[in-house]
Structure formats: structure tokens, C-alpha cells
Amino acid sequence: MRTPGFRLRPPLRPAAPPRITLNLPRLAWELVDQRRSWLTDSELHRMFVHLGIGEYGQVIKAVLEINERIGLPLPPRLVDQVLVWVDGYSSHTDYRHLRELVMMAALG
């Protein structure tokens, strides 16, 4: 017998982790924009060449390496997106190095 006004609630389920849709060209451009003032003219030129020919992974890796040099944190939203990109290379020989660069970029 149910008490008047009493309703059974559905069981609680853990929230699904947020899905990050990765737009690689946009991510690469945003990273360059974030670090533009710290890039030398030569580095900036190289970034634009790689962006222009669609080598977004090269741009992301280069920005992470430059970020290691300057030691400033990236915005968490960008760090999350870069982690998604890096995790796609989990079997690659550079995976650990890229992961370390992302962690350094997160902390600054």
C-alpha cells in the first residue's frame, strides 16, 4: 500500500562524462592564438605554414613545446581538448612526452 503523495524515484545513475567534440583545425588555431605573443617571427611563420597545409598535429605539438619554454598555463578548456587529441596517440612513441607537455601546460 502506497502513502498518498509518495512517488517512487528512478534509481540514481552516475552522470555520463561530458563528451568533447574535437575540431582539430580550430584547436590548432586557438593554441597559436593563445601563445602568439610569445612566438618568434620564425615560429609564427612555421605555425602558419603548418596550419595552411593541414598539419594540425605538428602545430599542437610545437605549441606545447613552446609552452614548456614559457611556462604559462593554458586555459582548462584547451587542455581538455589537447588531452583528447593526445589520447588518440596512446600507442605512438611520442605519447608519454606529449602527455607530459600537456600536464605542464595545465599547471604552467
Rank of each mutant, 00 (worst) to 15 (best):
M1T: 08
M1N: 03
M1W: 05
M1G: 11
R2L: 14
T3E: 15
T3G: 06
T3L: 15
P4D: 09
P4R: 11
P4K: 10
G5F: 11
G5T: 08
G5V: 05
L8C: 08
P10F: 05
P10R: 10
P11L: 01
R13T: 12
R13P: 02
R13V: 11
P14R: 14
P14M: 09
P14Y: 06
A15N: 08
A15P: 04
A15S: 12
P17Q: 09
R19M: 06
R19S: 09
I20H: 09
I20N: 04
I20W: 04
L22A: 04
L22R: 10
L24I: 15
L24S: 03
L24Y: 00
P25K: 12
P25V: 06
R26M: 12
R26E: 14
L27C: 02
L27W: 00
A28K: 07
A28E: 04
A28M: 05
A28Y: 03
L31G: 00
V32G: 07
V32C: 08
D33W: 08
D33K: 14
D33F: 04
Q34V: 10
Q34Y: 06
R35T: 15
R35G: 12
R36E: 13
S37T: 13
S37G: 02
W38E: 04
L39P: 01
L39W: 02
T40D: 01
D41A: 11
S42R: 08
S42Q: 07
E43K: 00
L44H: 09
H45Y: 11
H45T: 10
H45W: 10
R46D: 01
F48D: 10
V49I: 15
L51Q: 04
G52N: 12
G52V: 07
I53E: 13
I53S: 07
Y56D: 10
Y56T: 04
Y56C: 04
G57C: 03
Q58I: 05
Q58L: 09
I60F: 01
K61D: 11
K61R: 14
E65R: 11
E68K: 14
R69G: 01
I70T: 13
G71I: 11
L72H: 14
L72N: 10
L72W: 06
L72M: 12
L72E: 15
P73V: 07
P73I: 06
P73S: 15
L74S: 05
L74A: 10
L74M: 14
L74F: 13
P75L: 09
P75N: 08
P76N: 13
P76S: 13
R77Q: 10
L78M: 11
L78D: 08
V79R: 05
D80H: 03
D80Q: 12
D80Y: 00
D80V: 01
D80T: 00
V82A: 04
L83K: 11
L83N: 14
L83Y: 07
W85I: 07
D87P: 00
D87I: 00
G88P: 03
G88C: 06
G88T: 05
Y89Q: 14
S90L: 03
S91V: 04
H92W: 12
H92T: 03
H92I: 02
T93M: 06
D94S: 15
Y95Q: 00
Y95K: 03
R96W: 05
R99Q: 13
R99V: 01
R99Y: 14
E100L: 12
E100Q: 14
L101C: 01
L101Q: 02
V102C: 00
M103Q: 13
M104A: 14
A105E: 02
A106S: 15
A106M: 13
A106T: 04
